[in-house]
């Protein structure tokens, strides 16, 4: 090939890439270097994580959401300061007993060399998966995905307490609430707020640092949609290798 021919070819530098292509390219880069998740996030298989994320994409393409509204939450991880106002609000709003939680904050340490480390707080809750393992395993359909909103809901009167859903959940999002004789879980405050016209979950409202962003992913104008679909933003989910297709996304910007 001659120099002239080379010049006629399409440039391979990033300037000619569409934003989506650039994003995919970046993902691969991060996946390869293992930086994608900034270490391992819940999953112990970071390579698999990265692969799951970059090959299939953890965020479905715009317009490919099975529900409308397709409720989801975006967690701006680095901003979380573990003040636990979200937990308190959740407990109050949903009558969560002292031994349980619907949402909680995990803490991880990211080594900065020597004895120094950076603390990262990770809020976790039900991921309202598109392919929820808990729903599949329930023998009495006491839990299901709400047809309109995609929220994974519980019907306490049907729960026989076999706890298979708890074993099946990759996110430790379920617990057995003895008082109600049922497995209990986050429902994005569907019962306590959304169904009564209050359009944010209690934890979102309580967060002073704007960590938790809630909204309809299927609406391109919504903040959640814009956050996860902005080309420069790295988006990750927890334990993508389980194939559950979670609807709780994590970002740092």
């Amino acid at each position: 090939m001659k120099i002239d021919d080379l010049e006629k070819m399409e440039s391979e530098d990033v300037s000619s890439l569409s934003s989506v292509e650039r994003r995919n390219f970046l993902k691969i880069g991060f996946a390869v270097t293992g930086m994608y998740l900034g270490g391992s996030v819940l999953s112990l298989v970071s390579v698999k994580n990265a692969h799951g994320a970059s090959a299939s994409g953890v965020v479905p393409e715009l317009g490919k959401y099975p529900y409308n509204p397709h409720y989801s939450m975006v967690l701006r991880e680095k901003l979380c300061i573990d003040c636990e106002r979200c937990k308190d609000a959740c407990v109050k709003t949903n009558n969560v007993p002292s031994y349980g939680f619907r949402t909680t904050i995990l803490e991880k340490r990211h080594s900065l060399g020597e004895d120094k480390y950076e603390t990262i707080f990770v809020p976790v809750l039900c991921n309202h998966c598109n392919r929820p393992p808990c729903v599949r395993v329930c023998p009495t359909t006491a839990t299901w995905k709400d047809e309109k909103t995609g929220i994974v809901v519980m019907e306490p009167s049907r729960c026989i307490g076999c706890k298979t859903c708890m074993a099946a959940c990759p996110y430790n999002a379920r617990y057995f609430k003895e008082e109600a004789r049922t497995v209990d879980k986050c429902d994005f405050c569907f019962q306590s707020r959304l169904s009564k016209g209050v359009m944010t979950p209690a934890c979102v409202e309580a967060c002073p640092a704007d960590v938790r962003v809630f909204g309809n992913l299927a609406d391109p104008a919504s903040r959640v949609s814009q956050l996860v679909h902005s080309p420069e933003t790295m988006v990750w989910v927890l334990r993508p290798e389980t194939g559950a297709i979670p609807n709780v996304f994590y970002i740092n910007s």
């Binding site: 573990d82 003040c83 349980g100 707080f121």
Partner: peptide, 27 residues
Amino acid sequence: TRCTACHIGARGQARLLGADGATEKTH
């Protein structure tokens, strides 16, 4: 920047106060 350098959170406070909030048993 570096929020968690000062914001040790409820977990960090529990740890400083001796009660090991990090290893709390959950049901």
